[in-house]
């Protein structure tokens, strides 16, 4: 139950963050050039992403031995999670600018206005590319957390639910979801994925954790404390 909740939560949060970024692109294209082309682009991207999940998800669940799977996916999750955590720490400490959906929206709109003379496939391609590239991270998270915990269905459900929630909110407000605390979400997902990754990587190395899944809570505390320490060290004024 604990593992299933963690799987669902990680897939939901990861998918929510990326869906917000994809929504900004689709909204910018739709509001600038009309809705037909970006919607076709979005649907095509979602079908491609669904095929990737179905193909790789089934492949790793049915073909790869359990320990090898845990070692490989655990290692990749650690790399992936640490990258998100690294960026979130630098953003929280003020070294890197926060991701701003309003600015991303304006940048996409102005790039489209410069190309107004081009044919409508520009809108299709931009939406397809935006949704597909943002979705690749969701595909990885879903396959990694779902495949290794044998809860692919739960992870897929978490990913899809987040996408539906974000799309529904976007449909209602019809503007970028700038109020979503993206950095905080990425920070949280980074901590969770790094912890899960470490847990599985060590299991793949042939070690059983002292308290089994409960050890993930200790790992969460370790990575959270490390990232807070990093933020505090970065914010500390340099000696004169």
């Amino acid at each position: 139950m604990y593992a299933q909740l963690l799987t669902f939560g990680a897939a939901f949060l990861g998918s929510a963050v990326e869906s917000v970024e994809a929504l900004t692109i689709v909204l910018a294209v739709g509001l600038t050039r009309g809705w037909r082309a970006p919607l076709y682009g979005t649907v095509t991207a979602l079908v491609l992403l669904g095929l990737l999940v179905a193909f790789f998800g089934q492949l790793i669940v049915t073909r790869v031995p359990d320990l090898t799977l845990k070692l490989i996916i655990g290692t990749l999750l650690v790399l992936f999670g640490l990258r998100w955590l690294h960026k979130a720490v630098l953003r929280s400490a003020g070294v890197v600018a926060m991701h701003d959906e309003d600015r991303a929206f304006q940048a996409t709109v102005s790039s489209l206005q410069e190309r107004r003379q081009a044919r409508d496939w520009v809108g299709f391609t931009l939406a397809l590319k935006g949704v597909f590239l943002e979705g690749l991270e969701v595909v990885f998270i879903v396959i990694a957390v779902g495949g290794t915990s044998r809860g692919l269905g739960v992870a897929v459900a978490g990913g899809i639910l987040a996408m539906i929630v974000v799309a529904a909110i976007g449909l209602v407000v019809r503007k970028p979801l700038a109020m979503v605390p993206e950095n905080t979400l990425k920070y949280a997902v980074g901590v969770v994925l790094t912890s899960i990754g470490t847990f599985w990587a060590a299991e793949g190395m042939g070690v059983a954790w002292p308290l089994d899944f409960v050890s993930i809570a200790i790992l969460l505390a370790v990575y959270l404390a490390a990232s807070r320490a990093a933020i505090a060290l970065i914010r500390r004024p340099a000696p004169a």
Partner: peptide, 22 residues
């Protein structure tokens, strides 16, 4: 195959995160 040692791996990764970001 010593189970407690895996926490050392996590600590090493956490320390690495601090050094890399700073």
């Amino acid at each position: 195959h010593v189970s407690g040692l895996s926490f050392l791996l996590a600590l090493a990764l956490a320390v690495q995160l601090v050094f890399a970001t700073v």
